[in-house]
């Protein structure tokens, strides 16, 4: 189920003194099974873009197409959109409201037509995939959990619906390192199984490791779009944009400056380690 933005612009508070053009004539196509990292400085329009894709905002100009259909056209069946596109907000804990974790996660399945047993299985699956023990968490109040736990419950609620496209707005902010790794691995697995992942993140290290394609926005425009490796190798541009450079990339550059030549395309920790090994042991055949 491909998503397409066709010359989309969006203006906030149109006609007031606060009028701001958040997106300017953006065109973009995301195909099935992609893993797209969306990066950009605060206020660059990333959140606006994903809300447009999820149909939460209506473009001021242009079209948003899901599977070739304009989701804002008159007569479009929005349940198709809702069933297939899930969104996890930046503060997913604000998405929680039920009295127990189980009910909260089950909420999105209410009108899904699944019977009780199936709903319960889905909820168990979603909670377990988010690293909880279903039996010990199901009856707790979502509001009594820690920050990171709330976040995971909220994500479980979205995954339970099994959308084809999942959009995350800063999903790993606030998660601890193991939670972060586990979460990224999980969305990689979902992606392997064919789910399209679109995620906004400031975390250059994580994006370098997991995303396959990176798009960068600046002042409401798409300014970079390419394979993760290519985008992150452009250290100068990334630094100019204050987007942060992945730490292994930074270390590789520091080494190169000291005369310890490192390849120009290192982005992840594993790549850094193998490159150092190769240099020290020699010839790549230890």
């Amino acid at each position: 189920m491909p998503v397409e933005l066709e010359n989309v612009s969006y203006t906030y508070a149109s006609g007031t003194p606060y009028e701001t053009e958040a997106l300017e004539n953006m065109s973009l196509k995301i195909k099935d099974g992609e893993f797209v990292g969306v990066m950009g400085h605060t206020g660059c329009g990333k959140s606006t873009m994903i809300q447009l894709i999820a149909g939460l905002l209506v473009p001021s100009e242009g079209k948003v197409l899901l599977d070739g259909n304009d989701i804002n056209a008159k007569g479009y069946d929005r349940s198709v959109l809702r069933r297939n596109v899930g969104i996890v907000f930046q503060y997913p804990e604000y998405q929680l409201f039920e009295t127990t974790v189980e009910k909260d996660v089950a909420f999105g399945l209410k009108h899904s037509g699944l019977d009780r047993g199936e709903v319960s299985e889905r909820v168990r699956w979603a909670l377990e995939i988010m690293g909880f023990s279903f039996d010990s968490i199901r009856n707790q109040s979502p509001l009594s959990l820690s920050g990171g736990e709330k976040r995971r419950v909220a994500i479980a609620g979205v995954l339970a619906v099994r959308p084809k496209i999942v959009i995350f707005d800063e999903p790993i902010a606030g998660l601890d390192p193991l939670g972060r790794e586990a979460f990224l691995k999980l969305i990689s697995d979902l992606n392997e199984d064919g789910t399209t992942i679109i995620t906004v993140s400031h975390n250059a290290d994580s994006m370098a490791e997991y995303a396959k394609r990176i798009i960068v926005l600046d002042s409401g425009r798409l300014i970079m779009d390419g394979k993760t490796r290519d985008v992150f190798s452009d250290v100068k541009r990334m630094e100019e944009l204050r987007l942060g450079v992945s730490q292994p990339r930074l270390i590789a550059d520091m080494l190169s400056k000291r005369g310890f030549e490192m390849p120009r395309d290192i982005v992840s920790c594993g790549e850094l380690v193998s490159a150092i090994k190769e240099r020290l042991i020699g010839g790549g055949c230890p």
Binding site: Q247, I251, M254, L255, F260, V273, I276, K277, L280, I281
Partner: peptide
């Protein structure tokens, strides 16, 4: 990086805490 290099038989003199220290040790 220190521990992964160590696992491969490359022992740095001390375990670095910062990027600068790591670069120093490797050089």
């Amino acid at each position: 990086v220190y521990y992964e290099l160590k696992a491969a038989g490359l022992e740095l003199q001390k375990c670095p805490l910062t990027n600068e220290e790591l670069v120093e040790e490797i050089c």
